[in-house]
């Protein structure tokens, strides 16, 4: 494949893989107003390579907005966002795309592309770089990891909601970025596929990537995350390892509903339940 002739494009600064524990992205003191509402009111977030960080909190807490700030889509009117050590605005769109992949909640498409083309779109940032050679391998690996290989030739708009969500995740995986941001990736999925998706996220982190995932299911967050950030009303109310944050009193207060946290009889992750 030849490189698109684009003399106006700046030379792309390629990313260097981060070591486990390195800070790959940081939000400091972010304040954001959208439509007259303060959706973020001074938020700090540190994203480190090699860990899965879950963002949890009630509806309207600012989880998606924080993710938007982290991607550079939304510019906070106060505070700073750095990616790979430099302000997010100092990177070109392509440079950001080689550093972080994003899965949005809405994963529609305007034309009936086959699923394989959709996944291959994830390779677009690497066009014209030496990593272009990995395109086929990355696409095949992404299909395998999301259990969607059999859908490759199907037209994306004809897939079921769950299939679409997994193909969209495959696209994000094929991008092979050091940071992976997932906004409610499990919302349209059945139990088995929810586990599959978070296991994939886990594997990415084991392989050295930084993963930030917005989740509504606290059980999934408890089971699969290393670190949990709890947002409420535009503020971070708790941030730390799963066992420190997943406390009944804290969650009860944040969700305005009694929550119980039980030890798993088999010694696994804690079970989080609303009291009924």
């Amino acid at each position: 494949m030849s490189r698109t002739w684009a003399p106006w494009r700046r030379t792309t600064r390629l990313p260097v893989p981060a070591d486990r524990g390195d800070v790959v992205a940081r939000v400091e003191g972010a304040r954001l107003r959208l439509g007259g509402t303060d959706v973020l009111r001074g938020v700090d977030l540190t994203v480190r390579a090699g860990e899965v960080r879950a963002l949890i909190g009630p509806n309207g807490a600012g989880k998606s907005s924080l993710l938007g700030v982290l991607t550079g889509d939304l510019t906070p009117h106060e505070g700073t966002v750095t990616v790979d050590g430099a302000p997010v605005g100092s990177w070109s769109a392509t440079e950001l795309a080689t550093r972080r992949a994003v899965l949005l909640q809405q994963v529609g498409i305007a034309f009936p592309f086959p699923a394989e083309d959709v996944v291959r779109m994830g390779r677009a940032p690497w066009a014209g770089t030496p990593f272009e050679e990995d395109d086929d391998a990355a696409v095949a690996a992404a299909f395998a990891a999301t259990d969607t290989g059999h859908l490759a030739a199907r037209s994306y708009p004809t897939l079921s909601g769950g299939e679409r969500a997994r193909v969209a995740l495959a696209r994000v995986l094929a991008q092979r970025a050091g940071t992976v941001l997932l906004d409610e990736p499990t919302a349209a999925l059945d139990l088995g596929h929810q586990e599959l998706v978070l296991r994939v996220a886990r594997e990415r982190a084991e392989a050295g990537a930084a993963v930030v995932v917005v989740l509504h299911d606290l059980g999934l967050a408890a089971a699969h995350a290393d670190q949990v950030t709890v947002l409420d009303d535009g503020l971070v109310v708790a941030d730390g390892p799963v066992l420190d944050v997943m406390r009944a009193d804290l969650l009860t207060q944040v969700y305005r509903h009694p929550v119980e946290v039980l030890d798993h009889p088999g010694g696994g992750a804690p079970i989080v339940l609303p009291r009924r």
């Binding site: 070109s92 950001l96 779109m121 066009a127």
Partner: peptide, 23 residues
């Protein structure tokens, strides 16, 4: 010259930007 980027735009503007398109 711009045709490959139009494919990415089919995913929506935000997703296209996340894939490196200067939308």
């Amino acid at each position: 010259l711009v045709r490959t980027r139009l494919d990415l735009l089919a995913l929506g503007e935000r997703a296209a930007r996340h894939l490196g398109v200067d939308v």
